[in-house]
Design a protein around this nucleic acid. Structure first.
Lengths: 208, 208
DNA sequence: TAGATTGTTAATCGATTAACAATC
DNA sequence: TAGATTGTTAATCGATTAACAATC
């Protein structure tokens, strides 16, 4: 029936994937929408709607086969081909994130890091070279990275964004406070605004 | 007129705060809802609705005074009193996040870190002691932290959650993949699921 | 006064939830 | 067959956007 997979659904998919992986590991064979809903903190209706977005493969009266569902979601979320990725900014956050990316993230291949600080350039980070940001253009023209991880201040991100977009980078894991998606079309931006997240937490802790 | 400040509004407040701070620094005196909307990537309607949630202080025909607006939002988001905060998990991510929290985050005071690894216990991190997680209860009963930063695996978070909640910790900056808000009421959880974020980015890069 | 822009109500849109026939 | 649970349509809900009178 293939409804459109809306953004809220996409955001829930990794969570389904995680819980279904667990069940699969623990030998659970079937699961109902209401069981999943309870673990996920949502409703059975939503679970069924979500799964119907990418094709119904439950069995009426029975539920869903964990392995079928897991296979479908895995196919949807992951691909054989890893996304070539560059890291921009090798400060404290950049270093931590590069470690996370290489150690824990499926589907991404870090191929280079960039910084403007001469002390950083030439060193290694998570198994790749730290290059001069001035060489970004020549590097991209040769290696065509698909994703950039931005661990730089807002000002730098704003300055760099036009080149990055022009060089054909389509996906951005954005830790800077400059939101590219406001300005550029046709790119995919996943924002992780740690500062905003903390501010909003503080507000809610104080006012709840 | 004080409408309810809904979650989407709260999530936008830090962004308003950031842009208004900038304008204030640059000597901009007044701003209209449509100017702000353009920078924020939203509509003038939404900007006006948002500001009316916490009391209208624009001037019809004129716009908003940057300093008035900034002062109001600052009052709303920040407080004299910092939130006493503990960090749980001093692995790579925990170390990076503790640095971020102490160096860049207003409004939070890190008062201790916890780990279960004997090699970590007794060392220092971002100016605080790393304590044995076994001492969590006695520490909390003495110091009453308000916020916990969870940089531990899902399993550990799930095991620890009942104690944390019972010890009265109200706010959670949650980097683990265990979502406390599904299970516990009356707490505030700000989830930062880096893994999910990457998976969803990958999906969208491939399918856009 | 005329132009601009707010505050606020009404309309629209999209996502979530409820309901129920189909069917295992 | 009876009970359970899906797939799917309809109803609800909440957030966003549009519209416009009020007013600077």
């Amino acid at each position: 029936m293939q409804n459109k997979v809306s953004l809220p659904v996409i955001k829930r998919l990794p969570k389904y994937y995680r819980y279904l992986s667990d069940m699969h590991k623990n030998g659970v064979v079937k699961v109902s929408s209401s069981e999943l809903a309870k673990i996920m903190g949502t409703t059975a209706s939503q679970v069924r709607q979500d799964f119907n977005c990418f094709g119904g493969f439950g069995q009426q009266g029975i539920g869903y086969h964990v392995d079928v569902l897991l296979r479908e979601i895995t196919n949807l979320l992951f691909s054989e081909k890893k996304l070539d990725t560059i890291l921009i900014g090798t400060g404290r956050l950049g270093r931590a994130i590069s470690g996370y990316l290489t150690a824990e993230a499926k589907g991404y291949q870090l191929i280079a890091a960039f910084d403007k600080n001469p002390e950083e350039i030439g060193r290694q980070l998570s198994g790749v070279d730290i290059l001069d940001i001035a060489d970004l253009e020549s590097f991209c023209k040769e290696h065509h990275p698909e994703v950039a991880v931005l661990c730089i201040p807002r000002q730098s991100a704003q300055e760099l964004a036009p080149s990055l977009v022009a060089l054909g980078i389509k996906g951005y894991w954005n830790f800077s406070h400059y939101d590219l998606s406001v300005v550029y079309d046709g790119i995919t931006v996943e924002n992780v605004h740690l500062g905003d997240s903390l501010i909003s937490l503080g507000y809610r802790v104080r006012n709840n």
